[in-house]
């Protein structure tokens, strides 16, 4: 399955919907979207990974790159993910300590609201 990307803004949070496979072939498209969003002033990003079938280290690199960009603007990049096979990659690489990972968009929005 290819990669489908969409985004919307709710309550000051830009929600990026990702569906499909994030790998060495498709990750550049996600990187371009994250860079574009930051360049347009969206510094609080929430990437919804619930429909991601596959994520490799190239995809992790794109997410880390996005995090570095938003942090340069005192922003945030957090994730929604409950799939064990995706979470496992974050655990193996230690990135669970770097990203805020939520069980749902609503949970992430609530936490984001409290942080404001």
């Amino acid at each position: 399955m290819d990669l489908k990307l969409d985004h919307r803004t709710e309550d000051g949070l830009t929600i990026v919907e990702v569906e499909g496979e994030i790998d060495v072939y498709t990750a550049p498209r996600l990187r371009e979207l994250l860079i574009d969003l930051v360049n347009k002033g969206n510094f609080h990003l929430l990437v919804n990974m619930e429909k991601v079938d596959f994520l490799d280290s190239t995809g992790l690199g794109v997410l880390v790159g996005g995090l570095k960009r938003v942090r340069a603007h005192d922003g945030s990049l957090e994730l929604v993910c409950t799939q064990e096979r995706i979470l496992k990659i974050f655990r193996i690489t230690g990135l669970t300590k770097v990203f805020g990972i939520y069980a749902s968009v609503d949970e992430a929005k609530e936490a984001h609201g409290k942080d404001k």
Binding site: S57, L60, G61, V64, G65, K68, T93, K97, V98
Partner: peptide
Amino acid sequence: PLDLGMLSDSFMSGFGIAVIAGL
């Protein structure tokens, strides 16, 4: 140990083998 500042592209390229070793 992880530190966001050192997560450069070259560092990330080493993640592939780390992931394989974990899997």
